[in-house]
Design a protein around this nucleic acid. Structure first.
Lengths: 403, 403
DNA sequence: TGGAGTTAGTAAATATTTTTACAAACTTAC
DNA sequence: GTAAGTTTGTAAAAATATTTACTAACTCCA
């Protein structure tokens, strides 16, 4: 059994039947319900005797299990099979500027254990890295899953990441080897990495609204602004994995200095950070808000403003409207360039559906051509708060071609 | 033999050995030089006896031919094989606003016949469509190739095209069925269609500077402005095939009205048409140019200005510089979003290398983040004037998965 | 010039897969 | 409740592919 887990990790395995066995596993994993032998054989284009042989071998390896008979209208009732969800586990870790989270998922991507450190603050230091590793090791221990059953660990981290090489360019960039090498050395499991926005895009593609859609945008609108682009059914990572820097396109109306050193970055006007700044500016200009009655202005975070808008605070609504209109204009341009079938608003702003829908749409009509705009749907993410970590865990299954 | 040509057209052929035979053909087609039986078998993962059998069947079908022995340093010299370039032909047609061209290519994509109509003017009328068909029929006749040997016909046409359905939205949009259906009905060969920019991108991907590069932009800068985006090794067409409307992103500094009805489209400042307009404006403002000595101002076309710049005309150079800087800024944003490894400047402006290189690069540094910019190369197309038609012909081979 | 070493390609032996045939397990109709 | 119809899944037969063994064709070096 242990050997077989290693085989799964090795995607380019050239063992005799390996490719076909992986196809069977992937098929079962993607299927909504358990499948029959004839059904499987038809899909993977194998004869029933050969398929039966391989399936029996997989059962012997304990990766797939028989789960009773199927109800049919006619004929002999076939046995149905599925992947044993607890055959192995994958781990998702998300490292943000503020906050560190860890989840264990089974092969059906159900969360079986979770652990968070909300006090965590990301710093580009060895100490911080050591802390992250210790947190993960501790969390694995607490989860009580058999370490031999860990298929791999996927990390979503803020900043520029080369997911191919496993290098990080903004944080933990002081290592001699790649960041994935460091982690897998410390944790003794395969480690994969990507940036937080790509991870969110993967979650939407696998579990969310971008399922079965070949061309889509997933906007990660939280404290920062990012964009996962799905083109031809694949998440675009670009040549070094830097694709999606939507927050740093020069499309702002003002000339504010961005953290990246340039002026006019979209993120200076469209982001949680910008929302906080705008709020404080407006208050200083004499505007008023319900929020001030419950919280000190210096402690107000963009999450509070989103909440206040939901509760009807006029200033908050107007500021979010403004952000929606601006991001809509930028997205409209992107529609012209990439003609997506759907745009999904994810991240913390996904909850501000009512306030954002119309303003984004209005912004889009200013820039998008009518033909591609007409066929582009605007949707708000429905995966919920753990979208990012589910995406991080999904990296492992994606890399092993199981989903 | 005739039967086999039909088989090639039918990509999803489920005949016993068909997939493997197609693999062999594709391998031979893509290879720089003829291949040996052991070499082929290794690549397509077949044993030598089986591979030999299939190759012999392909030789019997006349699609591949033996072309002598290979010079080796040691051992028995193997026979080498290649696809018979004259086994079949594909046809490329390009329909622009002004100009209609036709070329026949053999399977090695060598042009074996060509035909142009420079007086052609594209109009959205039945008459014009009938003329195009007649022109193609006539050209096929003149080419003297066996009609049974035509694999298919690829059309590159200006305007919005859905290459999946074969529909055209700007020109010839009055038909009941799709434009490809109409053409293939009239011409009795499979017809594929895409817009002129995507066709140019395909040419660069298959024959040009984007070869082997997974993420690239191909700029089509001629009378209009378009962009073919290659992401993850594939040309992005978008959900309906409308991707690449680079000329209609709202990124211009001025507020000129565009043909699309919107204001601020990049194409109003960056395009051959804009160059003509700017030239005339400047002359009216009192500027002078060498061009005026040889040509009447009303008859000056952007091609003349490009030529004048090459000859050192100060006004032309300055106007093109300006265009370069602006497109550079727009491309810089795109670099942030898609992190391409190379940007290829194609179209008529590709010849203005000296004047454009620095200005485009300068524009890029204004908007692109340093990390993705550093690894992005700027190249000018080297395929030459027939890039578009070669790309149109290549659609056929691409659709049949031979390249 | 003629072995030693190497690779190509074919023929026979072996292994694998598919096809065919059929029994088992089921539903529905009469 | 039994016959007719359907589908599953296995066992034997047929087809197909791979492995192994071997000969042919070549270079290099003594």
């Amino acid at each position: 059994m242990e050997l077989f887990l290693k085989d799964i990790r090795n995607v380019n395995n050239e063992n005799r039947h390996y490719a076909q066995k992986r196809k069977i596993i992937t098929l079962l994993n993607k299927a909504e319900s358990p499948l029959t032998i004839p059904g499987i054989c038809k899909k993977v284009k194998l004869s029933v005797p050969t398929g039966t042989k391989l399936i029996n071998e997989l059962i012997e390896s304990r990766i797939i299990v028989e789960v009773g008979k199927k109800e049919t209208d006619t004929g002999r009732r076939p046995l149905v099979y599925k992947v044993d969800p607890n055959y192995a586990y994958c781990i998702g870790v998300v490292i943000l500027l503020k906050g560190l989270s860890f989840s264990v998922f089974n092969l059906e991507m159900e969360e079986v254990h979770k652990c968070e450190n909300n006090d965590f603050v990301l710093e580009n230091t060895t100490e911080c890295l050591v802390n992250v590793v210790a947190f993960i090791q501790n969390a694995i221990g607490k989860s009580e899953i058999d370490p031999n059953k860990i298929l791999g660990l996927g990390i979503g981290i803020t900043g520029r990441i080369n997911s191919q090489t496993g290098n990080s360019y903004n944080y933990f960039n002081f290592l001699e080897s790649s960041l994935t090498n460091y982690f897998s050395g410390q944790l003794s499991v395969p480690v994969y990495i990507d940036n937080d926005t790509h991870v969110l895009g993967l979650a939407e593609q696998v579990f969310g609204e971008a399922k079965n859609i070949k061309n889509a945008f997933v906007v990660n609108l939280s404290r920062g602004l990012g964009l996962a682009i799905i083109a031809n059914g694949e998440i675009v990572s670009g040549e070094q994995g830097f694709a999606g820097e939507f927050g740093h396109i020069q499309f702002a109306e003002s000339d504010k200095l961005c953290l990246c050193g340039k002026r006019g970055c979209l993120g200076t006007e469209v982001s949680g950070y910008a929302l906080e700044q705008n709020f404080k500016e407006q208050i200083q200009l004499g505007e008023t808000s319900l929020l001030l009655s419950s919280k000190d202005i210096s402690k107000i975070q963009y999450g509070d403003i989103l909440k206040a808008a939901w509760e009807g605070d006029a200033l908050s609504i107007s500021l979010i409207h403004n952000i929606g209109f601006k991001i809509g204009k930028a997205l409209g341009n992107m529609i012209n360039l990439l003609n997506p079938g759907v745009i999904i608003i994810g991240g913390k702003f996904a909850s501000a559906t009512e306030v954002l829908t119309d303003s984004i749409k209005s912004g889009m009509t200013h820039t998008a051509l009518s033909l591609p705009l007409r066929s582009c749907e605007l949707i708000f993410s429905s995966i919920g708060a753990n979208a990012d970590i589910k995406g991080a865990g999904a990296i492992v299954l994606r890399k092993m071609q199981l989903i």
